[in-house]
Measured scan of single mutants.
Amino acid sequence: MNLTVNGKPSTVDGAESLNVTELLSALKVAQAEYVTVELNGEVLEREAFDATTVKDGDAVEFLY
Rank of each mutant, 00 (worst) to 15 (best):
V37M: 04
D58C: 06
G57K: 05
E45C: 13
T21D: 05
K55Q: 08
D50K: 06
Q31A: 12
E33V: 06
V29D: 03
K8W: 11
T4Q: 07
V5F: 03
E42V: 15
V20H: 03
D58F: 04
T52W: 05
A15Q: 08
G7S: 05
A48Q: 12
V20T: 01
S25K: 15
Y34L: 13
R46S: 06
N40I: 03
T53Y: 15
T36K: 08
L27I: 05
N40W: 02
A30G: 10
F62E: 04
N6S: 05
V29H: 04
T53H: 11
V43A: 08
L3P: 02
A30V: 11
T11C: 13
Y34D: 08
L39N: 01
E22L: 07
V12G: 02
T21M: 07
Y34H: 12
V37D: 00
E22Y: 05
T36S: 07
V20Y: 03
V54S: 01
V37K: 00
L44C: 06
T52M: 06
A30H: 12
E16D: 11
E33L: 08
S10M: 15
G7A: 03
E42D: 07
V54D: 01
L44G: 01
K28I: 06
S25A: 14
D13Q: 14
T21R: 09
A30Q: 11
N2Q: 12
T21A: 08
E16K: 14
L3C: 05
A32F: 10
F49E: 00
E22S: 07
A26Q: 10
E33F: 08
D50T: 08
G57T: 04
V60C: 06
Q31N: 15
V43R: 13
V54N: 01
G41Y: 04
A30K: 11
Y34F: 12
A51H: 14
V54G: 00
A59F: 14
T21H: 08
N6M: 05
V20R: 00
D13S: 14
A26C: 12
L39P: 01
N2S: 11
L63R: 13
E16G: 11
V5M: 04
Y64L: 09
D58A: 04
E38S: 15
D58S: 04
T4A: 05
F49W: 15
D56V: 05
R46V: 06
R46N: 06
K28S: 09
E42C: 13
L39W: 03
Y64F: 10
V29F: 06
P9I: 09
G57S: 03
N2I: 10
G14R: 08
D50M: 07
V37I: 08
D56G: 07
K8Y: 11
P9K: 11
E45Y: 09
E16I: 13
V43E: 06
G57A: 04
N19I: 04
A59S: 14
Q31S: 11
T11I: 13
Y64N: 11
E22C: 08
S25H: 12
L18S: 03
N40M: 02
E22W: 04
P9F: 09
Y34G: 08
T4E: 04
L18E: 00
G57I: 01
N2V: 12
L39G: 00
F62V: 11
V20I: 13
V12C: 09
L18V: 07
E47N: 11
K28H: 12
A30W: 13
P9T: 08
R46I: 05
G14M: 10
V20M: 10
G14P: 05
N40T: 01
P9L: 12
E61P: 00
A51D: 11
E45A: 14
L24K: 00
E47D: 12
E47R: 09
D56L: 04
A26G: 04
L23D: 01
R46A: 06
L39V: 06
K55R: 11
E61T: 12
N19F: 07
T21N: 11
M1N: 02
L18P: 01
D56I: 05
V37T: 01
M1P: 03
G14Y: 12
L24E: 02
E61S: 10
K28Q: 10
N40C: 04
G57F: 03
A48G: 06
N2D: 05
T21Q: 06
K8P: 01
D13I: 14
A15E: 07
T4K: 08
G57V: 01
K8I: 13
E42A: 10
K8M: 11
K28A: 09
K28C: 14
K28G: 14
F49H: 10
F49Y: 12
E16N: 13
V12W: 07
N6D: 06
P9Q: 09
Q31K: 11
V60S: 02
T4R: 09
R46D: 01
V54L: 10
L3M: 05
L63E: 11
A26P: 00
A26E: 07
V37F: 05
L24V: 05
P9A: 10
V20W: 03
A51N: 13
V35P: 04
S10L: 15
F49M: 04
A59P: 01
F62T: 04
F49L: 05
V43S: 06
A15C: 13
T11H: 15
N19H: 04
N2P: 02
T53D: 07
E47P: 07
A32G: 09
G14E: 06
A26V: 14
V12E: 02
N19Q: 04
L63D: 12
E33C: 14
V12N: 02
M1T: 05
A26S: 07
T11A: 08
V5D: 02
M1A: 03
M1C: 06
K28D: 08
E38Q: 15
